[in-house]
Simulated assay, not measured.
Amino acid sequence: MTNALDRDQKIQKVKELTSFLFHKHYCENDVEAIIGLFDDKLSWFGAGEHEYNVGTETIAGIFRQFVNMIPKCNIWDEEYDVVDVSPDVYVCSGRAWIATDPSANIYLRVHQRITAVFRWEDHTSRCCHIHISNPYSEMTQQDVGFPAQMGQYTYEYLQKCIDEYKAKIEEQTKLLEKLRFEDSLTGLFNRNKFNLDRQDLEKANLSRLGVAAVDLNGLKLVNDGRGHRAGDGLIVRTANHIADAFAGKCYRIGGDEFVVVDSEWEQDVFYKAIAAMKENMEKDGISVSVGISWRNSHCDIEEQFDEADRQMYQEKTAFYSAREHDRRKSRRQ
């Protein structure tokens, strides 16, 4: 048996049920949950000029027409006040901000009002009257002839939704740009970015241009002897050293191939940065072959890249020839 509620408990219950009506209608579009609260006798004023009727069955039929017709909304800042007009009849007046969810593709924000009357019988509350106030009646003291404040609220909400969509698009664009131009293993720029920047540099009138081609020595031996995870680790360490020396100016264009492009530094600064980079790599147990091209006139990214690439391969050939010579010498001894 349900315990009887005292006056204060009934008032709290009526507030909760009125909020329940709001949320089931605007947030969940759960018509049957609303109909489940209807009394045997019921009157209803809807938000529209034509929305009025009496009779539980008639109103239930109207509400069932709302299924899948109400866009998903969000509700906040709910306020309710309850008056007990008799021991078993309670009138709740309330208001809340209601706004369409951005996913609904409908943009509206209103300060909705509701009046609901509940009748208690056999310890159970039933709704016998619902009245929804439409926002066109939201006239402020400053409004004359038209609810301009309500229009401003709607505009602000629409602008907020647009700003949120813009932020999402910008975030997604940055992510796509990162995926397009960033090497996933090292975080350096990738070949796509290098090719794009080459096109821009071809058109630029540069007063200086330095290009360095860097190739990691011994990667295959590491992959074959210790596995590709160790090889990847070696590539990342190499990339980190290059990035430390040339942040924002370096690219990974192949498995063990890197390029540095700089149009700001003087020749001595550029060469010193290369030397310091190689020294730090040697301390870290990393061997690289490097080719360099620097000009302060007739700068040409294509010519200089080819020049640096040729120098790098000459150095790489010398490295492997020397290592093979050392290996043969060791065998003879």
Rank of each mutant, 00 (worst) to 15 (best):
A243C: 07
V236A: 12
G254R: 10
C299D: 02
A247L: 13
A239D: 06
S263P: 01
I286W: 05
I274D: 00
V222Q: 12
A247F: 14
L216R: 02
H298M: 11
S289C: 06
D232I: 02
V288S: 01
E279R: 05
W265M: 15
E257H: 07
G233C: 12
K220Y: 09
A247Y: 14
L219A: 03
K249G: 08
N280M: 11
S207W: 11
N280S: 14
L219F: 03
A204N: 10
A212L: 03
D268Y: 10
A275H: 05
M281W: 10
I242R: 00
A245E: 01
L209M: 11
A273F: 00
N240E: 13
G227P: 08
Y251D: 09
R295H: 15
K203Q: 13
V288Y: 00
F270G: 02
E302S: 08
M281N: 12
L206S: 05
D215P: 02
N205Y: 12
N296V: 10
Y271T: 04
K220V: 02
F246K: 01
D244V: 01
S293N: 07
I286M: 07
R295E: 15
I274S: 00
A275N: 09
R252F: 06
C250K: 02
E264Q: 09
R229S: 09
A247P: 15
I286D: 06
V222I: 15
L206D: 05
G255H: 03
D268W: 08
M277R: 00
L201C: 07
G254M: 10
A204S: 12
G248A: 09
G248S: 11
L234W: 09
L219Q: 06
K203L: 12
A245P: 01
V259I: 13
K249N: 11
F270I: 00
G210Y: 03
A247R: 13
E266N: 13
W265K: 14
E257D: 12
H241C: 09
L221Q: 15
A273C: 05
K283V: 10
V214E: 00
R295I: 04
E266D: 14
V261N: 04
I292H: 01
M277N: 00
